[in-house]
Design a protein around this nucleic acid. Sequence first.
DNA 1: CGGGATCCATACTGATACTG
DNA 2: CAGTATCAGTATGGATCCCG
Lengths: 140, 140
Amino acid sequence: MTSFPGTELAKRGGAPDCVQTIELVRDVLARVGDKWTLLTITALASGPLRFTALHEQVAGVSQRMLSQTLRALTRDGLVTRTAYPEVPPRVEYALTPLGRSLSEAVDGLVHWVRSHQGDIARNRDEFDRTPVAKTPRQRL
Amino acid sequence: MTSFPGTELAKRGGAPDCVQTIELVRDVLARVGDKWTLLTITALASGPLRFTALHEQVAGVSQRMLSQTLRALTRDGLVTRTAYPEVPPRVEYALTPLGRSLSEAVDGLVHWVRSHQGDIARNRDEFDRTPVAKTPRQRL
DNA sequence: CGGGATCCATACTGATACTG
DNA sequence: CAGTATCAGTATGGATCCCG
């Protein structure tokens, strides 16, 4: 369960090395978990798309955010950016093998969420409904 | 590759239903990918811990953030909060079965990252080193 | 000891306007 | 078409003080 090599020791001691790994894991998770990345990757999953196509498809994203997201993904080598020197500029984005690889890895989480979203929803619901029990205290 | 039921259709059409799922997936991913969650879960992976213990172990987290993170995790039913009515207050946090389940699911990503961090680092490095070629600009 | 309530600095985001 | 630059509102994280 989330076992990094040396986690046990590092945790109870003072972590020097594995922290780097955790940082990177979180970094990747943060990117994937960011507001537009998952939508963007999903959109590209079925094939290359142009900027405008993505902009329409992701629905809700601003040019700015889409641009940023794509640059970040490109930087990590998860997506390729191909510009064709044509009269009306044309740029296509596509998932790289690495991108697809990550996409598949993410699938695990996706499935987990799909099969446990009920539990989470139920827990949240109960937690929110609970007046003042476990939660220390509160005043209105 | 990140295949949600009906993703293909929804993508090329106009997504109504699966969007909800994606939203929730992103929601969970965002939580896991948030700055302190992964560290916190990892810390709790080897057993229950008190607030202060966590505070020391996670290293760098403020009381506020730790408190928030724990409340969010508790709300989702991923962590339990047990307060013992003793003279010096004592509260223990522990992963729930659901929490461990998620933790295991996250392992997939962890392993992916571990085996591809080299690629990512290399890509970023190259991307950043590239002056101003095709990529409009560099830097985030 | 375990947080809640506040205040403040900064990061992030969206809307808008402007280019090659 | 495919972005970038700018500005303003908002969300986020940390530091601090305080109370049960």
